[in-house]
Structures are given as structure tokens and as C-alpha cells.
Amino acid sequence: MSQSLDAYLLLAAGLFAIGTFGFLAKRNAIAMLMSIELMLNAVNLAIVAFALFTPSLGAQGSVIALFVMAVAAAEATVGLAIVIAIYRNRRTPLVDEYASMRE
């Protein structure tokens, strides 16, 4: 286990960047949803790392991480519901085929 806060933050930033890349590069709505979850996990890693290395943030950080998990779960629920709704209409999960509104 590394003893440096920066190492954890770099890892979190790396995860966040992977999630961002996945969101921008993937064309499948489910994969984009997974990328967003990865970004939120990176956020949680950063929160927990701050809480571990800054004594005054200890308890606060853990609580915030729990809240972020709950929000991420709620977001995934809503997201999957919308993905299922559009899949029933269009029979495809690929977002670049959702293009019926263009000027």
C-alpha cells in the first residue's frame, strides 16, 4: 500500500480519464453508462483517499463516499430504464442511430 496521497489521486485521475474516454469513444448506450459508473468510482476513490490521508476529513469522507454510491445506483436505475424504453422503440442500443431530430 502506497503511503502517498498523490499516488491515489493519480490512480483516480487515470480511472476518471479512462471513463471519460470510454464515454466519448463508445457508441453503445450501455457501454456509455458503464463508463459513467467508472467515472463515479474514480470520484469515490479520490474521496476515500482524501479521507485516509487527511485526519480531519476521516468520517466526513466515508459518509460522502456512501452518498455518492447511492446516487450512482439511482442514476444507473434511471439510465437503464431509459435505455430499455428506447431499445423497445428503436431495436438498437447504438446512440449514433438515434438521429431522428436533426435540423
Binding site: 464515454f23 424504453a85 422503440n89
Partner: peptide
Amino acid sequence: DGLSTEGAIKYFL
């Protein structure tokens, strides 16, 4: 309605 869900998924993502 296809348009409504399409708007929703773009808004959501």
C-alpha cells in the same frame, strides 16, 4: 414515442 425517449437518453447521458 421515439422522439421522447431519444431526447431522454441524450439528456441522461
